[in-house]
Design a protein around this nucleic acid. Structure first.
Lengths: 234, 234
DNA sequence: ACCACTAAATGAATGCCATTCATTTATAAG
DNA sequence: CTTATAAATGAATGGCATTCATTTAGTGGT
């Protein structure tokens, strides 16, 4: 029984020395720690900087050690994705009106994933089964739609339609400001060029992406809202 | 002056021999050929199979030769993306009503990119400047919106909102059928689980993605449609 | 007709990346 | 106490985009 537990051993050198091989006395890694380190890494270096090697270094561990806790890099992305879902604001459901709740949810959902667009392809194919936070969000939103009088069989399609708009809009946030600059070909695209100019002049306040998101969200909310109480009950 | 041009030389061996080093008599590669080969490769092996090495092999060329014509793989994706834009059906604009034209455009746009979702992140950041087909599509659609009575400064935001929905919906098409299977956690998410069941029962005909897309598109078309003629003129 | 320049190919690196495997050590179970 | 399992290391492995030196063929200028 040594006086100093092995986990704390960092002798008189500068902390440069690596851990010796073999199972450590207390586990260094777990999923929560990996998730946190991945998020930290992403916020510091972006998704290009999120490599298994960099993640291992962040956790002061050999890259291969990660594979005792996750089966692949995709698995890490899944952990991050599920964590982010817990940041989406669903607090409107149950307190305010359906419209207000959906708007708050949609804006927050878009804002969260605008910072994490590389995860969007992951989500799209992700089975919800092993993503508890994601499941929790869907549960709250589903209940909100049901309570608002949506016909049960339309709830999922309505949520999916909103989500599709949200994911697409998240990409839009990251677009460069001059994305619609038609350059040398401006003469051959007069209507488009004029429309771009007018849009820039019209919506001076706020990001262009916000203008489009607001416009589309209004349309979706009012368009989907008419489905409510289409059933005789309540 | 040789009787047989060098470009045709494929001697008595099985055609296995490689081209000898140095500039060939007539150019082997150009952007159109690279684009076509990339599309062929993608349709045969998917986007995972689209590597610079595989593309080179498809064109019977050394990988490094590609870099005389494109600056990066991103550049290849850009060529493919612009080509796909020419496949989007804008024929409704100018012939039918605005609503019909938008619907046809949106469905076709979604269908094209549902087969090419890995390009969506590319499009989102792509400056339109060096994408002539893309620019042509925007020109036609912009004119269609203008002729339909949209206020000029709202045309681009409306198109962007629709596009965001379209891109998100394209991902949705590729989602596995059981994506919403809540598995062992079904008990803790009763409303969501019921909604998924009811949705499956309700919309038996057609893919689930089509139901959601149809619903969202209806909402957007009617919601955006009210913007028309909001200006006093015409 | 010659010469320099540029365009377009080859083939051999380079460096990064995710992943696997053999090995080592510690803990837990029977 | 013995055996199995969990969790770490470190050394491959194979694939990938990209770069570079080299070779050859057209092109433009004098």
């Amino acid at each position: 029984m040594p006086a100093v537990p092995a986990a704390q051993q960092r002798p008189a050198d500068g902390g440069i020395r690596r851990r010796r091989a073999g199972r450590p006395s207390s586990a260094v890694l777990d999923k929560a720690g990996i998730t946190a380190a991945a998020l930290e890494l992403v916020s510091r270096k972006g998704y290009d900087g999120l490599t298994m090697a960099a993640l291992a270094k962040e956790l002061d561990v050999a890259p291969s050690a990660l594979y005792n806790h996750v089966t692949s890099k995709q698995d890490v992305l899944l952990l991050v994705e599920d964590h982010l879902m817990s940041l989406v604001d669903v607090s409107g459901f149950g307190t305010g009106t359906w419209e207000e709740a959906v708007r708050r949810w949609a804006w927050s959902y878009r804002d969260v994933f605008a910072e994490h667009t590389p995860l969007i392809p992951v989500i799209a194919v992700l089975p919800v089964t092993d993503a508890p936070q994601t499941l929790a969000m869907y549960e709250t939103v589903s209940k909100g739609f049901l309570d608002a009088g949506f016909p049960p069989e339309q709830i999922i399609p309505a949520i999916v339609a909103l989500e599709s708009f949200i994911f697409g809009s998240a990409y839009d946030v990251t677009a460069p400001a001059d994305i619609f600059d038609s350059g040398t070909m401006a003469e051959s695209t007069p209507h488009f060029t004029a429309a771009v100019r007018d849009a820039a002049a019209g919506a001076g306040r706020g990001r262009p992406a916000d203008t489009a998101f607001s416009l589309g969200l209004d349309a979706l909310v009012s368009g989907l809202g008419v489905l409510r109480r289409a059933n005789p009950m309540e």
